[in-house]
């Protein structure tokens, strides 16, 4: 178990998301930055899809109620263990009574805190993700607050006591690659030109539902209203004011604004780490290229697992089978 001493700005339980119910109007939710979430999970040896905590800008203070292994990846929010700075992107053993906290944000927006065994809140519709708007999943369907106690699951894998490649989210201007469509034909040449050549600033009205941008308005041919259809993660919606909105994890599954493009999956983690004031540029790539980039990225993530597996052995002594973990003595 872990106890929340302070919830920070917005800390929620998230996994990969609630799939299979978009057709019923149910939001997917899930980790905004799936790459950092997966990295933290793999570092502690969790099975894919175990729930972790997503902390936003100001991290939580957490007291451990039992010995465990944890790892933090994503934004650098100033991770500390018992008041002393410790590294992100690597697994740490910790004892009951230890305190995890965050001093101050250095870069990025969202940090993922994974514990060995995962956050074992009951799944709702097949997912432990918190859907803040519908008030379901996670811990009582809401953000974490002081006094909350969360159960940890039984550890199934072996933690990887190494260091995963750290991502840097500090660049002030980020290039997000996009695949054009499905409604890019609704925009004028000038509108498409503005979108692909302009620079857009992230506004404070950004949240888990959408990252709202401000810059040169993207001009439509005949308005931005379309007959309502599906919205994908990373869809770039252009409402009537012409200012792009990146539709993120808590987006509604359908909507009625034209979508000029979709941020590629490999660059969605970068989008998830944007904070107000950051600037973005868009660059068009083909769908085929986007998919190759995603597959390459997934392969890199799988390597964390491969290295983790290397420290585990199965030996047979006198006919008895033993699983042995090899890890550094602390």
């Amino acid at each position: 178990m872990i106890r929340i001493i302070s919830g920070g700005m917005l800390t929620t339980v998230q996994d990969r998301g609630r799939f299979g119910h978009m057709k019923s109007g149910i939001t997917v939710s899930g980790a905004m930055d799936l790459r950092s979430y997966e990295t933290a999970n793999r570092l502690v040896g969790n099975a894919e899809g175990e729930a972790a905590l997503e902390a936003t800008l100001i991290g939580p203070v957490i007291e451990l109620c039992a010995d465990t292994v944890f790892a933090v990846a994503g934004a650098d929010l100033g991770l500390q263990l018992n008041g002393a700075p410790v590294s992100t992107y690597c697994a740490h053993s910790a004892k009951a009574g230890d305190r995890l906290s965050f001093a101050a944000r250095k870069s990025g927006c969202r940090a993922y805190i994974a514990f060995r065994g995962g956050i074992a809140v009951p799944p709702v519709m097949g997912s432990r993700s918190t859907d803040l708007k519908a008030g379901i999943g996670g811990h009582m369907g809401r953000k974490l607050q002081s006094g909350d106690v969360l159960p940890l699951g039984t550890a199934s894998g072996v933690p990887f006591y190494g260091i995963a490649e750290k991502e840097d989210f500090s660049a002030p201007v980020k290039t997000l690659r996009v695949v054009m469509g499905p409604q890019d034909d609704r925009f004028t040449d000038a509108g498409i030109g503005a979108f692909l050549q302009g620079e857009y600033a992230v506004t404070p009205q950004s949240d888990r539902m959408g990252i709202r941008l401000g810059g040169t308005a993207v001009e439509t041919k005949n308005g931005s209203d379309i007959i309502t259809d599906g919205i994908c993660m990373g869809a770039v919606q252009i409402p009537s004011d012409g200012q792009p909105i990146l539709m993120m994890a808590d987006r509604q599954p359908t909507g009625g604004y034209a979508k000029i493009a979709n941020v590629i999956s490999a660059d969605l983690p970068l989008a998830a780490q944007l904070i107000p004031g950051d600037r973005v540029r868009f660059q068009a790539v083909s769908v085929q290229e986007a998919q190759q980039l995603l597959l390459a990225q997934r392969e890199k993530l799988a390597n964390i697992r491969a290295q983790s597996a290397a420290s585990r052995y199965r030996v047979t002594v006198d006919g008895h089978v033993y699983d042995i973990e090899v890890r550094p003595v602390e």
């Binding site: 799939f19 309502t228 259809d229 599906g230 359908t254 999956s265 085929q288 997934r298």
Partner: peptide, 22 residues
Amino acid sequence: VEIVPSYRAVTVHYDPSFILFD
């Protein structure tokens, strides 16, 4: 992964690790 019908369109969500666009 998921098939989402709407008024006049169907959004077919898929996982490129299992099937590619073409």
